[in-house]
Design a protein around this nucleic acid. Structure first.
Lengths: 206, 206
DNA sequence: CGTACTTTTGAATCGCATCAAATCTGGTGG
DNA sequence: CCACCAGATTTGATGCGATTCAAAAGTACG
């Protein structure tokens, strides 16, 4: 299932130095597969193109604690620094993954200043996005979370739903039923309109 | 209120190059003060020592949306990249702040490879911490959030409460009453013990 | 000793999760 | 082209857990 990564299919082309990008591999993994295991030495960094990957650690009584959930983006940037994994990475859905050789990546970061700058920018964006998400998830009502989402991730009060409302509900930390009902209620009070795959606030509420 | 930063009081000493650290300033700001405003050109990067700072943006109808809330750590790392602020920073409690000159910081990141590496490590940790927090906040019961907190942020099932339970409740996105009740309930079922400022899981539950 | 804040418990209410079921949708194979 | 199926969407009913409002008890500090 491993294939060479054509330049055009990769969202990493603009980020990585050519030499590193040329070493990347695109792979498909099935639901349930492990990308890596705790205790093992990190060799690759993983970038999820689609599907879903979780990082899990087993508590001492044996029930797994989910540490992270990624549908699009890097998994475990921390592996840059540590000599072994502290958790498992599991595909919880059929997924497409890009593998980046870790040593080459680390070397490039030390040598290529411009690349290091881009990497820092990427991490800054990630930090910013995650802070917004945390702020959103600490809101207590579904309505507030939806409005915060549109205000922060949307453009001019218009937010594009990419992966379906069910998946969005998950991102917002609520059940899909609650999200459907909240959207219906917001439409009934003329606060927002659903059109195609967009959630759009009415003028008075944007 | 601005004073020179002695080397010993600063958690940034180990991170920043000496030349940059020497240019930092420690300031005290009162509740309500603005650290910066949207539209202005970034000159400083801010690090919150204690107190509380929020990033806010005004929605078009005028109600402020909180983008970020920091009690300890950097505010708006993103200002490294943008030529003007896109939000306001407000102290919502009396706070102590370290100011870092942005230009000197950016220059140092380009020149000093080792520093860039430390900066990347710092951002990695931040990303990791924020992902854990997001995962935690998407749990639906207070009990689950508390246990996740102890499992992920604690050591050997032992978590130190730094700033009081009321503040912890806020971090967990629940009311303090709900947290108090949940802790009481977990103690009654012999799942955890409160001792001094620690939350400690019993052996069978760690 | 008084004041401010945290911690704790109580009671009422409300929003969301949960379980269920119906409808709608896109895609597949006959 | 239609029948069928899997998944998404939608609506309904019920119960639980957290919020909210209230008040009391404990604690730190000047």
């Amino acid at each position: 299932m491993i294939e060479n990564l054509t330049k055009f299919s990769s969202p990493l082309k603009a980020l990585l130095p050519d030499a590193v990008h040329a070493l990347c591999m695109k792979t498909s993994v099935k639901k349930g597969a492990l990308l890596f295991q705790a205790g093992k030495k990190p060799v690759w960094m993983f970038f999820v193109l689609n599907g879903e990957v979780t990082l899990e650690r087993l508590s001492q009584q044996g029930d797994p604690v989910v540490l992270q959930r990624t549908r699009h983006g890097f998994v475990s940037e921390a592996s840059l620094q540590s000599s072994k994994y502290h958790c498992d990475a599991r595909a919880v859905a059929n997924s497409e993954i890009i593998q980046i050789p870790l040593q080459a990546l680390a070397d490039a970061l030390n040598i290529d200043t411009a690349f290091a700058g881009r990497w820092i920018s990427m991490l800054n964006q990630e930090v910013k996005r995650l802070r917004l998400q945390s702020e959103r998830l600490s809101m207590k009502s579904v309505k507030d979370r939806v409005l915060h989402l549109i205000h922060t991730e949307g453009k001019n009060g218009k937010y594009q739903v990419n992966t379906g409302l069910k998946s969005l509900a998950n991102e917002l930390g609520v059940t899909h039923e609650a999200l459907y009902r909240t959207l219906a209620s917001l439409e009934k009070t003329y606060t927002l309109i659903r059109k195609d795959s967009f959630l759009e606030l009415t003028e008075t509420n944007s």
